[in-house]
Design a protein around this nucleic acid. Structure first.
Length: 111
DNA sequence: TTGCTGACCGACG
DNA sequence: CCGTCGGCCAGCA
């Protein structure tokens, strides 16, 4: 699938995230094989606005479960509301039980 | 065309 | 424990 660029790969993985689950930038980056390029994953989220399909970027958080990208949403607590809407508890912009809700594409995503 | 920046992570001292 | 640095790729001026 060489047609898929790094961004497209990120979008695909993010869109494969099941509801009620969250993942981290590093997990996606490592899954894509970039590993250290976790920053690109976040940048892809920023570019996700260009994607016609809605990318559940609210399910993507940093390694500590912090809603690092919530500042990039409509500007409010939309990201937290979306997570809570899926059953994910969020406290102080952080995902509760992050370890349990953590979804690793390299393990749970079956190609 | 070149260069800087960016929602991060991991390693080192 | 905490501060600092390197690294990857794509978009924008």
């Amino acid at each position: 699938m060489q047609d898929d660029t790094f961004f497209d790969k990120v979008y695909k993985v993010v869109k494969c995230i099941p509801p009620g689950r969250v993942t981290s930038f590093g997990a996606i980056a490592r899954f894509l094989g970039t590993g250290k390029s976790a920053r690109m994953v976040g940048w892809a989220m920023n570019a996700s606005h260009s994607q016609l399909e809605n990318v559940p970027a609210h399910r993507v958080v940093n390694r500590v479960g912090l809603l690092s990208g919530k500042h990039h949403f409509e500007g409010g607590n939309v990201m937290q509301q979306l997570l809570e809407s899926e059953g994910i508890k969020v406290s102080d912009d952080k995902v509760v039980n992050f370890a349990q809700l953590f979804w690793d594409p390299a393990k749970e995503l079956v190609l």
